[in-house]
Simulated assay, not measured.
Amino acid sequence: MAATAAARIADAPRAVSDVVREDLRPQVGAIDAGAYPAGVLRALGAAGAYDRHVEGGPEGLLGAVDAMAEAGEACLSTAFCMWCQDALVWYLARSGEAGARRHLAAAAAGDSLGGTGLSNPMKALSGIEPLALQGVREGAGYRVRGRLPWVSNLGPRHRFAGIFSLPEGKRAMGLFEAGSEGVSIAANARFVALEGTGTYTVMIRDAYLPDAEVIAHDAGAFVPRIRNGFVLLQTGMGLGLARGAAALMRADAAGRVKAQFLPLGPEAIEARASALRERVAAAARTHEATDRAAFLETLRLRLDVSFLALEAAQSAMLQFGARGYLEGADAFRRLREAQFVAIVTPSVKHITTELARGA
């Protein structure tokens, strides 16, 4: 009887918290040094981290943010990879194309890993830079070429989305596979943080994209339907990092006494994170709105999360002082990670530009 009960417990799916505690935390140092956490990401998928928002309901979207934040408390590299995976699932679940949707189940379960590929298109749609990919209609598909400088959560056979311009002035969105014919990846830079995120330059050399891999033939109409969720999902990274910084400060008992008069302590960080999560919950209830005013509100929320992450990591660094300035120090890692929250698309400068333009 006891053996049967033990077997049932052993076979029970693990929670996200279990994966973070047992699999992720012991590897944080290695991931920061450049190890891609493929096993952790697949385990998070098995724990249900990526399938919560498939149906698009507000509770599911908030659940995906919470799962990402839980990982982000320990490691932003992993939380960022989770966002890449979540965004891919978000596109596939909203696509009206049966061919693309056939990849949804594997992506939502973490069996198939992949990236977003929309950093350049999001900037292009804001007029910040030109669209990097170009395509032409050919038979039952498109012939595509171009170069994406940085796409994350990639590896051989990983899939990622891409938006490409067409001669008639429209844009289409498709699903590409790294390492397939005409689609190559290369590591051309080394970053100060998030080196373990599977970030590559993608070269697409006249690759053929069949209609079965098209997410949207009209990306101009599709993007407004996904952009609020795309940005809201990112808040999990910043909320998790802020809470992780607060936890780091709390665990440093001696340092906390000496730093008690710093302007931002762990209690204030946690209170702001809680208030921001409530705003995420409210925004999730209206994520389907396609008007610009709603998108600007989403961007304001994302901006506030970015600033909290920066301030929380800075506070942790100030508390640890010289101890945080040593190579391998967690306080310095969190500071480097927080800066990424502020520069990943849409970055703080991107968001502030959009807000300045107004509705």
Rank of each mutant, 00 (worst) to 15 (best):
M1A: 15
A3K: 10
A3Q: 12
A7N: 11
E22T: 12
R25D: 06
Q27W: 11
D51E: 13
H53I: 06
L61A: 11
G63T: 04
D66M: 06
D66Y: 00
A67M: 08
A69R: 00
Q85L: 12
A106E: 15
A109S: 15
A109E: 15
G114R: 13
L118D: 09
M122Y: 11
A124S: 15
L125R: 13
I128L: 11
P130A: 11
R145C: 12
P149V: 14
P156H: 06
P156E: 12
G162F: 07
G169A: 10
A178I: 02
S180Q: 09
T197N: 07
D206Q: 14
D206A: 15
L209E: 02
D218Y: 06
A219Y: 10
A221Y: 03
V223T: 04
G229L: 07
A246E: 01
R250M: 03
L262W: 01
A268F: 00
A273Y: 01
T286A: 11
R300Y: 03
R300L: 07
L301C: 05
L308Y: 00
L308Q: 00
E311K: 05
E311Q: 04
Y325G: 12
L326M: 10
A329T: 05
R336P: 00
V344C: 11
T345C: 14
V348K: 14
K349H: 14
T352G: 04
R357E: 13
G358R: 05
